[in-house]
């Protein structure tokens, strides 16, 4: 049995201007110990998806359909108390701005102890001991537990948050851009630490980021989301060598590398669709260089194309041709011209 199984999950936000369908019919599973990278542009639904797993959606967000099976139980159906028991002990989240969520009038240690005690049966002394242990694991001195948040640097605060998230050895860690606000040297060290601990306590991880190079280094598998749907899922090493989906091919062209490849970077013209509107056909159709009549009408479903490699495109047999054309600038320039001809914005 997988640790986590997400089946046909759809999430809506009710806004003043209508319903926004942030996540639409998403399914995937996660094995014990697996680390999964979730990538996509802003607004593609990756953070919404993550929050739904801890039932932390904002008040106007609703799980409209689907199930999230964690250790055999459906998280969607759990009541408040059931969710509370799950949080921190079973599923822990590290978010981007987490370091700003520390309470400024309590020491970091008190906050850690409070968290541990709220979600376990530990006594104050046991919790304090555990806090010291996790601080050491994450690379902070135990005396730092007596510091107030303002006495710590951004990197230290983010470490403290990670220590808190990992303090009860959760089975699933959800990391939502955990290092985006940090400098590259600190980022590198913290990411190493997170994976080290994740491997040590054998937990699974969902790692959300817009930086595909981090996924390449940290995760075993990758899911590419676009406009609320999964476009491609594969093992990381397969994905980075031979991405299949036209959107993934476009992303690969757009990404600069520190190792000079001398290739010109090419953007994907256009913008993601407005999810307040009813979506017909493939969501990537407006920006896809290979779109056909069929893509305008039928929404492609996620299908296995080769062992362990899934893609939501009608034309798996044309991957060779797509890959070759995708590296040429003209291919994407033609999309821009098409967008302008259709009266839309070319960029």
């Amino acid at each position: 049995m997988s640790l986590l199984e997400v089946n046909n999950l759809s999430i809506d936000y009710i806004t003043g201007e209508g319903t926004l369908r942030a996540v639409d019919d998403v399914s995937f599973s996660l094995e014990q110990g697996e680390s999964l990278g979730l990538v996509g542009e802003s607004g593609c639904g990756k953070t919404t998806l993550a929050k739904s797993m801890m039932r932390l959606l904002p008040d106007n967000g609703f799980i409209k359909a689907g199930e999230i099976i964690f250790k055999g139980d459906d998280i969607v159906k759990k009541d408040k108390e059931g969710i509370r028991k799950l949080r921190l002990r079973d599923i822990a989240m590290i978010s981007q701005s987490a370091m700003n969520s520390l309470n400024p009038v309590h020491t970091v240690g008190d906050q850690l102890v409070e968290g541990i005690r709220a979600h376990s049966n530990a006594t104050k002394a046991e919790a304090r001991k555990r806090a010291e242990e996790v601080f050491e694991i994450i690379g902070l001195e135990a005396k730092r537990l007596n510091s107030y948040p303002h006495q710590m640097s951004g990197g230290m605060k983010q470490r403290a948050i990670i220590a808190m998230a990992l303090s009860l050895n959760p089975s699933l860690i959800i990391a939502d851009e955990p290092t985006t606000a940090l400098d590259v040297v600190v980022q590198d060290k913290i990411l190493k630490k997170i994976t080290e601990i994740q491997e040590h306590i054998k937990s699974s991880m969902i790692f959300i980021t817009h930086d595909i190079s981090v996924v390449s280094e940290l995760c075993e598998s990758i899911i590419v989301m676009y406009a609320g749907r999964v476009m491609e899922k594969a093992k990381t090493e397969v994905f980075f060598k031979t991405p299949f989906h036209p959107y993934s091919l476009g992303l690969k062209n757009a990404f600069p590398s520190i190792l000079d490849i001398g290739e010109e970077l090419i953007s994907i013209p256009g913008a993601p669709p407005n999810l307040m509107e009813e979506q017909v056909g493939c969501r990537f159709k407006a920006r896809c260089p290979y779109r056909t009549e069929r893509c305008q009408k039928d929404e492609p479903q996620l299908k296995q194309v080769e062992e362990g490699h899934f893609m939501a495109c009608h034309y798996p047999e044309r991957i060779g041709e797509f890959t070759e054309k995708a590296s040429k600038r003209e291919t994407w320039e033609a999309v821009r011209e098409r967008l302008i001809d259709e009266g839309g914005d070319g960029i």
């Binding site: 590259v184 930086d211 595909i212 190079s213 390449s216 520190i258």
Partner: peptide, 14 residues
């Protein structure tokens, strides 16, 4: 050297 060595690379073989 430190700065450059900390930049992640999108190449699973590297």
């Amino acid at each position: 050297q430190v700065l450059l060595s900390s930049v992640p690379v999108a190449d699973p073989d590297y």
